[in-house]
Design a protein around this nucleic acid. Structure first.
Lengths: 194, 194
DNA sequence: TGTGTCATGTAACACGTTACATGATTCG
DNA sequence: CGAATCATGTAACGTGTTACATGACACA
């Protein structure tokens, strides 16, 4: 799924600026399973405008660049929905430097191993909180997506969010239960065969 | 982490051909948290050879291209270890078309939603089995990595594998518990507001 | 005073993907 | 008989990343 499609999807939840779309992928609704950077979003929106998939209204602001608020056209909406029906989803891809590095824990100082594990856990704890679509102390910008007239998040969103939280929580739990064991074993090995 | 570093890491577990390295990322030890395709591995190995990080021995084979068995040089080993100590790990990145699509479940036929969920679950079940470093009915090529003299997988590998399994299992469990609820709610909504 | 947020945009660059080329063997 | 496995390699191509450019305001 290229950035253009992702932008269309982001706009399915209502109008937004490029900057706000990035936040949905950075902080918000899509943050745990898709990535898109500003450097790819802006060109994508330009292209989508040219193709008639989105339109924008410029809002003047003092001392800031004009805000461009983008919105799906009916053509854009149709195109996105068609894509949804026709696309064979690509394989999931997960890349984690930390896990790769931890594979070589035996070759590292134990303090580094521990730091990496803690960082991994911290990231997942944070993520788990960010994901909750009804988290009350979350900034408004994270609440854009997939809500019906009453402001309730859509069932699809809830399901995906719940799944994301389950994954994060399982990760954190595993670490809580297994970190010490790993560190102990590493210390043992170092003691026996240095 | 670029492909060159990943290849060095792969060779930390012993000698291997390019083809076998790909399998470690496809099927094997690294498959659940890193990706590398043949089209990037071969050029990386060439470059690493030029830089003195690896060497290879050519084994003739009948009716097949000669097999090049690569091995770390001591320089390559040192370089990899240094990278390990000095690299600030990049953020994890997970991309899932399926989860993105499921976000829009309300806009899809229910059969498609269900099919996507089932596929997601199936992929994670498969992954969970592939991950187990001691799975007996796993082809030998998946057993390359991170083993000590006795053939036992290294503690780092075990930890990372366990973590991967925990994530997969949590995913599968969540789906088992929540899929039907989602489908029911979607059906309800369709019945009420078509 | 420096960092972060809001806000857009461009462009060089690195990187990996995909497809192509080759070819025997094995498995269903 | 077609598909998959083993086995390497090249090259065009598309894609996204990174860094740069600009600038005000708020917060610590």
């Amino acid at each position: 799924m290229d950035v253009r499609t992702l932008c269309l999807g982001a706009l399915m939840g209502g109008e937004a600026t490029g900057y706000e779309i990035r936040k949905m992928f950075d902080d918000g609704t899509f943050s745990h399973f898709q990535i898109a950077s500003l450097g790819s979003i802006y060109p994508a929106l330009t292209k989508l405008t040219q193709d008639g998939m989105v339109t924008f209204v410029e809002h003047e602001q003092e001392n800031k660049p004009d805000k461009k608020i983008y919105q799906l056209t009916s053509e854009g909406r149709r195109t996105f929905l068609r894509t949804l029906l026709q696309t064979r989803p690509a394989e999931d891809r997960y890349r984690s430097d930390i896990l790769f590095m931890l594979t070589f824990a035996e070759e590292m100082p134990i303090e580094l191993t521990e730091a990496l594990i803690d960082e991994f856990a911290a990231r997942h704890e944070l993520m788990s909180m960010q994901i909750d679509p009804d988290n009350p102390d979350k900034p408004a910008h994270q609440k854009f997506h997939g809500r019906d007239e009453d402001g309730k998040p859509s069932p699809g969103c809830c399901f995906v969010a719940g799944l994301g939280q389950a994954m994060c929580n399982a990760t954190v739990k595993f670490i809580r239960e297994n970190k010490q064991g790993l560190l102990d074993e590493l210390r043992n090995r170092k003691a026996n065969k240095p």
